[in-house]
Simulated scan of single mutants.
Amino acid sequence: MSAYVVFTREQTTDAEELAQYAHKAPLAREGRELTPLAFYGQLEVLEGNEIEGAVILRFPDMAAARDWYNSPIYQEALQHRLRGANYRAFIIEGAEETL
């Protein structure tokens, strides 16, 4: 069953660090089955605190999402994201389709 990694950027603290993250993070996608479904597009917060942006990535399953997140390449890029902004990130399993 598909799994989704969701990121919400709540506040940028260092734009240069985020630029380094933006340069390095795509390298972790190479050779992996993932589909960007939303990537910092127009958004409207309906409830809760405002956010600056959001990303949704689809993976084949929870294991593939965890493998990508925990990969050495992504973990190296992640350090720049953590220094560059306050984010929330989580993995959620998709729902089975019903007829």
Rank of each mutant, 00 (worst) to 15 (best):
T8H: 12
R66W: 02
R58P: 02
L18Q: 05
N49L: 12
G31A: 11
A25M: 00
R9S: 09
D61S: 02
Q20P: 01
E33M: 06
T98K: 09
A22M: 02
N86R: 14
Y21L: 08
F39T: 15
A89G: 15
R29V: 11
E16A: 07
Y21P: 08
A54P: 02
A38R: 03
G41C: 07
R66E: 05
E30A: 09
A25T: 04
N86W: 13
E76K: 00
A54E: 02
Y4S: 06
E52I: 09
A28S: 06
L99N: 15
A89E: 14
Q42M: 13
P26Y: 06
L43E: 07
A64E: 08
A28P: 06
L78T: 02
K24H: 11
I56Q: 08
L27C: 04
V6A: 01
A38N: 09
I51C: 03
M1Q: 07
A85D: 10
A64C: 09
N70Y: 11
R83E: 03
H23Q: 14
S2W: 01
D14H: 12
E16G: 03
L46K: 14
E30Q: 08
Q20L: 12
V55N: 04
V6G: 10
T35W: 00
I56R: 09
A95I: 06
D61P: 08
Y40M: 15
S71T: 07
A3G: 01
L78C: 04
H80G: 07
L57D: 00
R58N: 07
E50F: 11
A63Y: 09
A54K: 04
K24N: 13
T12A: 10
W68D: 11
I73P: 08
L82S: 00
A28K: 10
R32L: 11
P72E: 08
A38L: 11
G53M: 08
D14T: 07
L82H: 07
N49E: 14
Q11W: 07
V55T: 10
R88E: 15
L78P: 05
E97L: 14
A3F: 07
Q20V: 13
E50M: 13
D67T: 00
T8D: 06
K24R: 12
R32K: 07
A15T: 12
A22F: 04
F90Q: 13
K24Q: 15
A15S: 05
Q79C: 03
R29T: 12
F59H: 01
E16L: 10
A95V: 13
F59C: 10
D61H: 12
F59T: 00
I56M: 10
R66V: 03
F7V: 12
G48S: 03
L37R: 03
E96W: 12
R58G: 03
Q75F: 04
R32V: 11
Q11E: 13
R88T: 15
L57P: 01
A77Y: 07
E10P: 04
P26Q: 05
L34A: 09
Y4N: 01
L82N: 13
A85F: 05
L78D: 02
H80R: 03
G84N: 01
A25P: 07
Q11A: 14
M62G: 04
L34E: 01
A85K: 04
A89I: 15
T35V: 13
F39R: 15
E33R: 05
V5W: 07
E93S: 08
R83L: 04
M62H: 04
D67F: 00
L46P: 09
P60E: 06
R83M: 02
E47C: 11
E97F: 08
A64S: 00
E44A: 14
Y87I: 15
